[in-house]
Amino acid sequence: MSTTSTSLQGDREQRTLVAATAQRARERSLATRDLVLSISTPILLLVLWELSARYQIIDPRFFPPPSQIVTAGYEMILDGELWMHTAPTLMRLFVGGGLGAISGIVVGLLMGSSRALNAALGPLFSALYPLPKIAIFPILLMIFGPTETPKIIAVFITTFFIMQINTVSGVWAIDRKLLEAGAAYGAKGFDRFRFVVLPGAMPFVFSGLKTATGTAVVVVTAVEFTGATTTGLGYLIWNSWQLFIPEKLYVGLVVIGVIGAIVTTLLSRSEKLLLPWRRER
C-alpha cells in the first residue's frame, strides 16, 4: 500500500512539474514576442515609408525614401563630407558637455553640502536656469567672435545648470537616516562627502547626465544653425534645407539622433556598472 501511495504521489508531482514547465514556456514565448515586436515595428514603418515615397503617396521631395537617404549617407562618408561635419559637433559636445558636467556636479555637491554656499548661489542659479541658453549665444559671439569658444561655452552652460540642479536635488534626496548614520559612525568632513554624500547623490547625477545629453545635443544643433559656423551637423541640416537637398538633411538628422542614442546608452551602461547597488530595482 505504501508503494501505491508513493507512486501516486510521484505521479502528482510529475503532473505539477509538467504544468509548471508549460507555464514557464508560455512566459518565455511572450518575452520572445515582445522582442520581435519591438524590432519589427520600426522596420515595418521604414518599409512603409519607402513604399509610400516610391509610389508618391507622400511627397518624396519632403520625405525622400530611406534607400535614397542611405545612399546619400554612404556617398557622404566616402567623400569625407559627413565626418567633416560630425567631428566638430562631437568636439563641441564632448568638450563643452564634459567640462559643464564636471563643474556642475562639483558645484552641486558643494552647494548640497554647504548651507551658506547654497544660500548665496541657490536663488541666483534658479533665476538663471530657465533663461534659454541659446538666447545668450549672440552675446557670446559678440565677446568671442565666430570661433569655437562661444559654441563650446553654450553647451557648457546648458550642461552645467542641468547637472548643478540635479546634483543638489540628489544631495537633498539622500535619506536623512543615512546622513545621521554617517554622523553616528563618525563620518566627518571629506569622509562624509566620500562615503555618504557622493554615493547618495549618484542616482540623480546619472539621471541629470541623461537629461543634459539630450539638451546639449539640441543646443549644439541650434548653435550650428545660426550661421556662426560652416561646420557641424546643425550646419549640414540647415544648409541642406537652404540648398534643398532633403537627403543630406535627413542624413544629418539621423547622425545626430545616433550620437544622442549612443551617449545615452553608454551612460545607462556605466550607471549599471558604477552603481551596482541600484541593479534589480
Partner: peptide, 23 residues
C-alpha cells in the same frame, strides 16, 4: 556610542561587509 536605527540605516551603496566595517 554605536547607533542602530529602526530602518534604512544601512548604506544601500555599500556591501554588507563594508557596512559592518564602516564604523
Amino acid at each position: 556610542a554605536a547607533f542602530v536605527f529602526q530602518e534604512h540605516g544601512v548604506f544601500p551603496w555599500m556591501t554588507v561587509l563594508d557596512n559592518i566595517g564602516f564604523g
